[in-house]
């Protein structure tokens, strides 16, 4: 099985904080699989996820220690924590996309939302843009709903549609890894179902890591699950294994809803 990313002895400390929020995380992310991150509120799931594309660097003073290796298709690895130049970070974020809890359409048209990242990446050719936008919208299962209103503002879409638009926007850049931070917690059950289906389809193309508070969701969509608690990774393994027969008592207690 191929690795997409590997986190080794990873510590993360927020700016101004005394103690690290993540304390020595070791875990793999396998290529073309869905990895779920679960754990009680405040345990550091988002913090870990946001380290994987170094979005933390938008704010000054945060500190990383350890290694996060990103593998390309040929199996070559790079430690993303060694990046220091802006262009390296930009390249990283084009390779590792991110979807947030609330939909974040930009204040521009549907078309321009998708084309935005492509234009940043230097694609100017009109027909190529059109093609990639259409492909991305189809890939995010929203093409049929928006194809007649591509020039309208993205703000007019429903919450679920906006979230799929944001997924399309990320997919358009052909990332290798997509990070989802509770992508459905602000959505109704039907939109949630659509996103879950989409995640399952997308893993043909990209590797996915998803933070969720919803145990059913984790067991439905993920192949691997990582359970975190107070900044530690307590247990990592195949999802069936974690849910049916966890090694750690803490994991079992959390999954069966005895705390969290």
């Amino acid at each position: 099985m191929n690795l997409a990313m590997e986190t080794k002895e990873f510590y993360f400390t927020y700016a101004g904080a005394e103690a690290p929020t993540l304390k020595g995380i070791d875990m793999p992310i396998y290529a073309n699989k869905v990895t779920a991150l679960i754990g009680p509120s405040g345990c550091g799931k988002s913090t870990l996820l946001r380290s994987w594309n170094r979005i933390h660097d938008v704010y000054p003073g945060n500190r990383y220690e350890g290694e996060i290796l990103l593998y390309d298709k040929e199996g070559n690895e790079e430690n993303i924590l060694s990046y220091s130049k802006e262009d390296e970070l930009i390249r990283l974020r084009q390779r590792v996309g991110m979807i947030f809890q609330k939909p974040t359409p930009f204040p521009m048209s549907i078309y321009d939302n998708i084309a935005y990242g492509l234009r940043l990446a230097g694609i100017k050719n009109r027909s190529e843009l059109d093609g990639r936008v259409e492909k991305a919208l189809k890939g995010a299962a929203i093409w049929n709903e928006v194809k007649d209103r591509l020039k309208q503002s993205a703000m007019g879409l429903s919450g679920g549609q906006q979230q799929r638009l944001c997924i399309a926007r990320a997919v358009a850049l052909k990332p290798e890894l997509l990070l989802f931070d509770e992508p459905t917690s602000a959505l109704d059950p039907i939109s949630t179902g659509a996103i879950e289906e989409l995640v399952t389809e997308l893993k043909e193309e990209v590797t996915i890591a998803i933070v969720t508070h919803n145990m059913q969701q984790a067991s439905r969509v993920s192949d691997y699950t990582a359970f975190m608690y107070l900044g530690d990774l307590i247990e990592f393994g195949k999802t069936e294994k974690i849910f049916v027969n966890p090694k750690e008592k803490l994991t079992e207690e959390y999954i069966t809803g005895r705390f969290g």
């Binding site: 802006e86 262009d87 930009i90 990446a121």
Partner: peptide, 13 residues
């Protein structure tokens, strides 16, 4: 780093 990228970074700076 290609030319577009370089121009973007320069403009940003």
């Amino acid at each position: 780093m290609n030319a577009t990228q370089r121009r973007r970074l320069l403009l940003n700076r």
